[in-house]
Design a binder for these strands. Structure first.
Lengths: 219, 219
DNA sequence: ATTTATTTTTAGACAAGCCTAAAAAATATA
DNA sequence: TATATTTTTTAGGCTTGTCTAAAAATAAAT
C-alpha cells in the first residue's frame, strides 16, 4: 500500500509530533531520517497529495487521520516484532530496534494479527513503550522521568526515553532494567544526580544523563 | 548488502537453473518476475558488473559462486520463515509463500541464525523443499514424481512441484498432505490418472494434473 | 538457403527518492 | 526598523528499476 520510505516519514512525523507541541519542522524530520531538508520537502508534498499529512509551506506538517493510522500501524508492527525478537528469539533489548526497523514494513494484516496472538497480546514492548491496538488506539502513559521524581518515593522503572543501544547497554551494566524497584534517598542539587536504594538494599547512583532518560511510575 | 530487487533476480535465476539444464534465458526470468525482457537485460548487465552472474549477450546467464551464495541465502531465509509461519503462527501451507516473499529480504544474519534455532533447525519447509544450510549447502533430494512411480510401490508424499495456493488447497481438499502413505493400485494408460490406497485402506483417485506435481519417495 | 518468426538488446524516457547549490521566507539581532 | 542568520523551498541533476518502440541477433520454416 505505502512504500517503505513513506511509512518511515509518517512514523517519524508521528513520533516528533508526540514530543514537540507545535507542528513538526522539515529540519527535525531530516535530522531523524538522516537525510537533507530538500528531500524532506519533496516528500512532504507527495504525502500531502496523498492526503496523509497537512502541509503548508514554511509552516511544518502534521498527520491527517489517514496518516496517523498508517503511522500507528507501523509503530504497532515495530513493537510487536520487538516483543517477538526479545521474548522468543532471546535478543537483548539493545538489539531489537534495528531489526524491527526492517520487519515493521512487512505488509500482511493476517501476519500482524497472528503474531499478536502468538505473543499473547502484549501491551508494551521490551523498552516499556505501549503497543497501539489494531484500531490505532495507543495508551497514554502517566510515567514520569526519574529526574523529576521526588525524594523518598517508591518507584518502578517502566521505560526509557533514549532507545540507543549504547544507553541500553549502560543500563544493563548498572543493573537498571524494566521492573526494577527504586527508592530515591538523595537528589543532588549540584549535578542532578540521584541516589537510590534497590529492593535488596543495595545503593546505586545515577547521573543526570541517566535519570533524564528513564521513565518510572510511583508505586 | 544487495537490494530487494537484486535478491529476487538472483533467486529466480537460481530456481530456473535447477529446472532447465541449459543457461537461463532472459524471457524466462521476465516471465517469473512479471516484468519485461528489456528490464531483465538491464539488470543482468548490472549483476554481471557486480560479479554475481556470468552473462553473455544473447547467450543467457548463470550464477557465479558469489551469486549462488546470495541466492541460496535468500532461499534459506524464505524457507525458514515459511516454517515459522506454518509451525508457530498456524498459517496454512497455501498461505506462507506470499508472506515469506517479503520476509526473505530482511537483512540480519543474527536473526536468521536465531530463527533457525527457535525452529529447532528444520531441514525442510512446509512444502517439503529442503532448507539450504548457512554455508549454502542444499540437499539434493532423490524424490520422484507420483506420475513416474511404479505400480504396487509403497510411497510417501514428500513434496509439491507446484506451489500455487490453488494447487495446495486442492491437495488439502482431496486429503493429500506431506507424509501421506500411498500404495499405487492402478495407473491408467489412457489419461495418466492414478488410483492409490491409503494406510487406512481408503482409495483415492488422482488426475495427471495432480500426479505430475507431487513428489514421493519409495518407502 | 532464404525468408519468417522469435528472442534479445539498444535507445530513450519515466517515477521514486535522493542530492547540491541557490533563492526565498521566516526568525533573530542590532 | 533594518540587517543578519537560520530555515525552508526551488531548480536542476543523479541513480535504481522500470517501461515502450525499434533494431539486431538467433532460431525455425519453407
Amino acid at each position: 500500500m505505502y512504500s517503505y520510505t513513506e511509512e518511515n516519514y509518517l512514523k517519524t512525523i508521528y513520533k516528533l509530533s508526540t514530543q514537540d507541541i507545535d507542528a513538526v519542522s522539515t529540519n527535525a524530520i531530516a535530522e531523524v531520517l538522516q537525510t537533507k531538508a530538500a528531500s524532506v520537502t519533496d516528500m512532504l508534498k507527495k504525502l500531502a497529495d496523498k492526503n496523509l499529512v497537512n502541509y503548508a509551506k514554511y509552516k511544518g506538517v502534521d498527520l491527517t487521520e489517514k496518516g496517523r493510522k498508517v503511522a500507528l500501524d507501523t509503530v504497532r508492527k515495530h513493537r510487536l516484532w520487538e516483543c517477538f525478537l526479545y521474548d522468543k528469539l532471546n535478543f537483548g533489548w539493545d538489539e531489537v530496534h534495528e531489526i524491527a526497523e526492517q520487519l515493521e514494513h512487512i505488509n500482511s494484516e493476517a501476519l500482524t494479527d497472528k503474531l499478536d496472538e502468538f505473543l499473547d497480546f502484549p501491551t508494551h514492548d521490551p523498552h516499556g513503550d505501549p503497543i497501539p491496538t489494531k484500531n490505532g488506539v495507543i495508551k497514554k502513559s502517566n510515567f514520569i522521568l526519574l529526574c523529576d521524581a521526588k525524594l523518598n518515593q517508591n518507584l518502578v522503572m517502566t521505560g526509557v526515553a533514549d532507545h540507543s543501544a549504547a544507553f541500553l547497554q549502560h543500563l544493563d551494566k548498572i543493573g537498571l532494567v524494566l521492573g526494577t524497584a527504586l527508592l530515591i534517598i538523595d537528589k543532588s542539587e549540584y549535578d542532578g544526580s540521584i541516589t537510590v536504594n534497590l529492593s535488596d538494599n543495595k545503593t546505586l547512583h545515577f547521573s543526570k544523563d541517566v535519570t533524564k532518560n528513564v521513565w518510572v511510575k510511583v508505586k
